[in-house]
């Protein structure tokens, strides 16, 4: 392999980034020729361009992160932005940045109410370094002050990665439960029909009742879960239980668009698929609905789930469009 004078992968990558941006806006005829010449010079260039274009295509996944800029911190004063780079491009850029600052879209300032649609999973920075990941069909309201970072999980499931800031506790409220964190990562589930559940993957949180702030709090450490029954008074010892690493990753698998089951009934599983939209899974027969199931499934593919289940539970699947029906296999 010739070593001397060989173009580095890095400089090829830089050129590939430039060509990707040009391709994105459309090439002129002379650029088209220039690109072909460039590509024919070294076989790695085609690869670098393909990779750069893949990265560019991939970046539209940023859409699922949603509010990148939406949740960005408020604009800095203009003078702070006169950095080296701005100075280099001169007064025009300064003027431009003032214009841009003045025309910042209104959504930058709207109150932080974060909503996910059916089937949508979104990861949103909260501006203080903390990040919330919302599961399908969930609503979170964030109000941050100098003293406190308050989050209201109105409904659904959310996972919080909390930036450490002892002077501003991070408190998540769901129904009558409050979850207080300093610097940690945990998820809270607030789904009608089942208890509010808290799963801690890092650090520590204190779980309590809104009605009795500070009193009777349960400390949950990493790899622990607590379910808060609606009616019973908080019985600290009874609600907290440890999670194995497997249980933990299962409990948080929704963040990757996956649903994990471990001995859940088929009815429960169908219900959880229902939260992601798509065809509804209906189950004929109580015995079938009670069957325990285990496995990891794509939340967006209830049909695939139904087919897999049919095979393992010896059931039949009827795809009726909006409804996927599972029935016990007819024995002859």
């Amino acid at each position: 392999m010739p070593k001397t004078g060989r173009e580095t992968a890095q400089s090829i990558d830089e050129a590939a980034a430039i060509w990707t941006a040009r391709l994105d806006r459309g090439l002129t005829e002379s650029e088209q020729t220039e690109l072909e010449d460039w590509l024919s010079g070294d076989s790695r260039r085609m690869g670098a361009l393909a990779r750069a274009r893949a990265i560019w295509a991939h970046a539209d996944r940023a859409r699922s992160l949603g509010a990148l800029a939406t949740e960005a911190p408020p604009p800095e004063p203009v003078w702070r932005r006169i950095d080296r780079r701005t100075v280099m491009i001169g007064g025009g850029a300064l003027a431009a940045s003032i214009v841009a600052a003045a025309s910042i879209p209104a959504y930058l300032h709207r109150p932080k109410r974060l909503v996910t649609a059916m089937g949508e999973i979104r990861r949103v920075p909260l501006g203080d370094g903390s990040v919330v990941t919302l599961d399908t069909h969930s609503v979170v309201e964030a109000s941050f002050s100098e003293q406190k970072r308050s989050i209201h999980l109105v409904s659904g499931v959310a996972y919080f990665e909390v930036a450490h800031d002892p002077s501003r506790p991070f408190v998540v409220e769901a129904r009558d439960t409050s979850v207080r964190a300093v610097g940690t990562a945990f998820s809270v589930r607030n789904i009608e029909g089942s208890p509010v559940a808290v799963v801690v993957s890092e650090g520590k949180v204190a779980v309590g009742r809104l009605a009795a702030p500070g009193a009777d709090e349960v400390q949950l450490a990493a790899n622990m879960q607590a379910e808060m029954p609606d009616i019973a008074p908080l019985a600290p010892v009874n609600i907290a239980r440890p999670l194995s690493p497997d249980d933990l990753s299962r409990a948080l698998s929704w963040r990757d668009g996956m649903l994990a089951f471990e001995g859940d009934t088929l009815a429960e599983a169908a219900h959880r698929f229902g939260r992601y939209g798509g065809p509804k899974i209906e189950i004929d027969g109580a015995a079938l609905a009670r069957q325990p199931i285990s496995g990891l499934f794509a939340a967006s593919d209830p049909r695939g789930f139904a087919r897999a289940i049919a095979v393992s539970l010896d059931a039949t699947v009827d795809d009726e469009g909006d409804i996927v029906r599972l029935s016990p296999a007819r024995r002859s």
Binding site: T8, A9, Q10, I12, D13, S43, R44, R45, M46, G47, A48, A50, R51, A54
Partner: peptide, 11 residues
């Protein structure tokens, strides 16, 4: 880095 570029080129 080289090899990754070459791999993408093939793909």
């Amino acid at each position: 880095d080289d090899l990754v570029q070459e791999t993408y080129a093939v793909l």
